[in-house]
Computed example of a mutant assay.
Amino acid sequence: MSAKPIYHCPFCAEEDLRPVEEPRGAWACGSCVRVFSVTLHRTDLAEAGPVTREEQR
């Protein structure tokens, strides 16, 4: 599975990002020179509350 695009650096909020090979799925920020990865572990539906029909669209 390939890494999904990240649009903003979580540290400086800049958009100057590029994927890096190592570690797998990581991104490099050209503005603050940090290398980071973002991982979604799960969606906690119990905490989300009920979903309305409009939200399902």
Rank of each mutant, 00 (worst) to 15 (best):
M1G: 15
M1Y: 02
S2P: 15
K4I: 02
P5K: 00
I6D: 03
I6S: 10
Y7D: 03
Y7N: 12
H8S: 10
H8P: 10
C9Q: 05
C9D: 03
C9Y: 02
P10C: 01
P10L: 05
F11P: 03
F11D: 01
F11R: 07
F11S: 02
F11L: 05
E14N: 03
D16Q: 12
R18N: 05
R18A: 01
P19R: 08
V20E: 15
V20I: 14
E21Q: 12
E21G: 09
R24W: 04
G25D: 03
A26Q: 02
C29V: 05
G30F: 15
S31Y: 00
S31Q: 14
C32F: 14
C32M: 12
C32T: 13
C32V: 13
R34H: 12
V35F: 07
V35C: 06
V35I: 15
S37R: 08
V38A: 02
T39R: 14
H41I: 11
H41L: 14
D44L: 11
A46T: 05
A46F: 10
E47R: 12
G49T: 04
P50G: 04
V51P: 12
V51Y: 10
V51F: 12
V51S: 11
T52S: 09
T52Q: 07
R53F: 10
E54P: 01
E55G: 07
R57I: 14
R57T: 11
R57F: 06
